[in-house]
Structures are given as C-alpha cells and as structure tokens.
Design a protein around this nucleic acid. Sequence first.
RNA 1: GUGGUUGUAGCUCAGCUGGUUAGAGCGCUGGUUUGUGGUACCAGAAGUCGCCGGUUCGAACCCGGUCUUCCACCCCA
Length: 455
Amino acid sequence: MKKPSIPKGTRDFSPVEVTRRHYIMDTIKGSFNNFGFQPIETPSFENSETLMGKYGEEGDRLIFKILNSGDFLRKVNDATYAEKNSVKITPTISEKALRYDLTVPFARYVVQHQNEITFPFKRYQIQPVWRADRPQKGRFREFFQCDADVVGSTSLWQEVELVQLYDTVFSKLKLEGVTIKMNNRKILSGIAEMIGAEDKLIDFTVALDKLDKIGEEKVKTEMLEKGISQDAIEKLQPLFSVAGNASEKLETLKKLLSVSEIGMEGISELEFIVTAIETLQLSAAQLEIDVTLARGLNYYTGAIFEVSAPEGVAMGSVGGGGRYDDLTGIFGMKDMSGVGISFGLDRIYLVLEELNLFPETVTATTKVLFINFGEKEALYAMKAISNLRNAGIRAELYPDNSKMGKQMGYADKRDIPFVVLAGESEMREEMYTLKNMKSGEQECLSLANLLERLS
RNA sequence: GUGGUUGUAGCUCAGCUGGUUAGAGCGCUGGUUUGUGGUACCAGAAGUCGCCGGUUCGAACCCGGUCUUCCACCCCA
C-alpha cells in the first residue's frame, strides 16, 4: 500500500511540538492581553476580491484559490476557455481564496463592523495563513501568524508600545539578542524624491532592501536595470555610508534629506520613537534604524518594523509590521490609520529549538502512572487517581494488566517520574507504594501522604 | 514561477565502474527475569530501494517524467 502523505509545505505536529507551540502562543497571547489587545478571529477563506490585488503582483500568484463548487467549467464561455490563460480564467472558476495574512482580513473586519467597534480598536489575532510559495527552511505553505494591530489612532505612542510589545515577548521567551529594525516609509519616499525617482519608488526600495544581502555594487546594478538613472544613483551615495547608533544615523539622514518635506517628517517620527525607547529601555531586544528596510511596501505608509533572529541563527525575519494610513481605504473607509506587528510563530519555534531555549517543564507529561495488577487492583488504583486528578495532579492508570516490565518500560519511555504499585498487600493495608523512577527509591504511603508527596 | 538538490527498514544512514538471497546502528517484539523500568546478553520481525516509464541478458545504481526534501532566485513570517 502506498504510504499516505501530506501536501508540500505542511506539517504534522507531535505532542512535544504542540506543547512547545502552545508555550510560544500562550506567551504571545499573554503579552497581547497585557497590552490591552482583544482577540478576534476571521474565516480561513475570504472572497477572492477581498484578497486579490492587495499584496502586489507577486502576491496574487501566492494566494491559494479555492475552486468553485459544482460544474464550474460550464460557466466559462468558450472563447475564454480556448484562450487557456490561467490568470484570466481564475476569477470565473474561483470566487474564494485562503487567507494570505491577517492584516487584510482585519481591515475588512474593521470596515464591515465599523458601527460596533469602539475606536481606537486594539485587536490581536492568532491564526494560520496560507501561501502557495515554494517551501524552504522556515518557510511553509501553512503557517501561523500572531498579529497585534491598533486602528483609529495616529499617535506615535502606538509605535512605541509595539516596540515594547516585541521586547516583552522575546524577553519572556528568553530569546536574547533579537534586533528590531525600524524604518519609515516617508524616509524612503523622501529619498526617492531627492534623487528624482518618485515614480520608481517600489523598484528603488526593493533593490535597496537587498543591500546587506548582495552588497552595494549589485544594488546599484539592479537599480540601473530598473531604469533609475546613473545620476540619481550617485546622489544616493551618502546613504550607503549611514552608520553609527540611532541618533547618529538620524543626524546623517537629516542632512541628507533636508530638502524633502516628507523625508523630514519620517525622520522626526523615527526620532520620537527612538527617544521614547531610549528612555523606557528594552530588556531582550535592541532597536536599530535601518534605512534599507522596505518590507510590505504595498500598504505601509509610516513606520516599518522587522525583527531579525539573534546573530548566528540562520533564519529570516521572525516578525514584521508597520503603519498603514489607508488600509481600510481599499474597502471604502477613509481616514482610519492603523499600525500593527506580526510574530512568526513557526520561525520563532525553529529559533528557540536551535538555541535550546524551550523550558524543561514545557515537555512535562503525566506525573504518576499506576501499575495495573488486575481488575480489583485497577479499581483500587482508580479511586486514588480520581483524588490525585481532583488535586490537579496528572495521573493515569496503565490500561492493561500487562507484565510489570512492560508497564514500567512504558513509564520509562514516556518520562513519567513516578509509578504507584498497589497490589493485594497494599490494598489490605489501604496503602500505596510510590516509586521514584529516577532514584529508584520506594515508599509505602497512605492516600493522604501520596497526595502530599505528589503535590 | 526559475535553477539546483534529496529520497534505501519505524529513525539515522552504508551499499564499489550496473551483476545472484539489499546491510549496519538505534528503535521494535520475545526471552534470560510471572511485584520492578533504565544497563547487559540471546533470539526474532521488519524494505515491490519515493512513484511511473525507458535503456540493458541483468537496474537501488544509467536515462526521462512525476512527487517529496533541502538550497539559491523571486518574495516573505
């Protein structure tokens, strides 16, 4: 028989993995609540028109489309069918698509429920998203995002809080040394304005974003290929040498962008956040200004965040986010500024695993296993088990009256730290023999003492 | 979507320029030990070599396709 399998880029999770994933999720969720965010959930799939065209050209390709039910081909007219153009035929055979991220569905939610929502609205959402991407390390076709967004406030304090939120979560996860990289879309616009390439903003930023990966020369080559003039690229030169700490970088940028009103606006926004964070301090993360950061350019208008794993861990970003002044605009609701961040659960998992940062207790299973000596003995054991369970102690009975060696081996393999033996003699005395599997020590205890010992 | 890479027992992997009944370690099952696991010793089960097709007297090995894994690009959590 052919072995069953799961689709490319998807995974099964074992008990240990699920427990560890919950540990991360609970940590994130706890912090979200702590910062005043409220949970919502949205459907796994949306109407295609809600998602299509929201993530750029590339994005549409990566959206999983759901085939219409019924005899969907019947509705396609012959001319379209004969053309064999997949992109063109898609809307007629697919009207629904799997969620690609949590931000666009959230925008849809806000517009749809605007009359019930009290603004500013702080929501969080932890759900899987799907991308028809080609899998790689830390890249899946089904993965979880953990998002926190605020809509209905343009206050920069939100950005400050989101930086703190990142720091709080990573600090709780004991993940030291993550870098929160920050930029501002207005600065990028300012630079484009300064070099006279406003119309090439996206090409320009996409190329700039690759600086630390492919180097200055190749970035320049790519910009030339995309039609940015040699002249403009030369004006860009000072940008490649922006260095120092946050304040120093800001000073350099100020000189560079003094001619651009929008650029200066971006700088002052960054400055506000940096100053606040310097005063408030971070514990696990460090904040860094990175003018080459250009992620999610499609809807971000102000701050842009990206969190990279500690140095030495080969992993893409473990989080990202930013401010979008007009996200709800695409659904017909104007002047509703939002800002949010996302945690990449699956990638955080891989990083914690690589750095061995999962606490021992996260893998703890049953605390005590009762050996099964037969029907009467099992009933006697079950009474004690109920008592232990009511006291919150994880206890279980070995289901079958198997040989002791097998039952002990089971406890051993599952890392169950205690075993209780209660046979005829114990029953006569109303006692229980408790064995510590690590030390091998045994003692005979009453139910009350057993409870106490295992608490 | 483009280019490359990987697939052999439950797991990790050997397997020569194509040559008979495909191996190891770990794990698993049973026994030494019927109220004592982790160690030791003994025995055993388990694979249509990812799948489909081709070349050949003969294919785990060569060729083509396909799926999967990982990597680079694209893009992203």
